[in-house]
Design a protein around this nucleic acid. Structure first.
Lengths: 114, 114
DNA sequence: TGCAATTGCTTGATAAAATAAGCGTTTGCT
DNA sequence: AGCAAACGCTTATTTTATCAAGCAATTGCA
């Protein structure tokens, strides 16, 4: 359903298999606060904090704010429901290649199912 | 010399010949706080507040943050050869799920390669 | 199996953001 | 001139973000 800042941050962290304390070390944001953020207990985090995390996770800052509902989406591009993991800036070149291959594979399968 | 949030916001407001109270009405941020912001008495404003103002003044949010020294200048935007394949509108929900799982797997492997 | 480290999380304290109220000054109107 | 409204700003207060400490549960290893 609704994308929240918590979901996005948690997903980004788990995707990288980092613990809250590892993120604390790398970002300077305390693990206690990170937990609160991930559980959507913080309503208006500072731009600084949000930026640190977007930088660490390599996700676009604007996108993070939009998806988190902090701001209404700017342009039309009428889909907010997107998943972050794949905004291409999140992926290394190699990962991208492999994912595309895998996607081809998935679609190839699907075709046979019909 | 130094660009500060205060200077930027004040300049933007005066350019439009708005009073603090007019900005308050249009943005929802109190005039008292606006004054503090313009005089650089606030160190870490929330993303929400900053965004409201950037929107009202129609200035780029990232630029505001950079100029305000909240973030360091973002480097190469050369990554913007964005890949279509993964922009979420191209994926079914199921595909997205599977791809995330696969990505987790990829990164899990990678981590063990230390 | 058992101890130690690590996990995510809650809670209490503190610092800071954000507001409401009010100040003295300036502007505009009759 | 004189009143009223609007101005930017300061201060007091409320609200919120953020952190340090510590919890129970899980994991890793001898």
């Amino acid at each position: 359903m609704e994308n929240t800042i918590g979901k996005i941050l948690k997903e980004a962290r788990e995707l990288r298999r980092l613990s809250l304390r590892e993120v604390e070390i790398q970002s300077g944001v305390s693990n206690a606060y990170l937990s609160q953020l991930e559980n959507d207990k913080i309503k208006k985090p500072s731009a600084n904090t949000l930026y640190k995390l977007s930088e660490l996770f390599n996700i676009n800052f604007d996108d993070l704010m939009v998806a988190a509902g902090i701001v209404e989406k700017k342009k039309d591009s009428s889909k907010t429901e997107g998943h972050f993991a794949f905004s291409s800036e999140n992926l290394t070149g190699d990962e991208e290649k492999r994912l595309i291959e895998y996607l081809k594979f998935l679609r190839y399968q699907q075709k046979d199912d019909k």
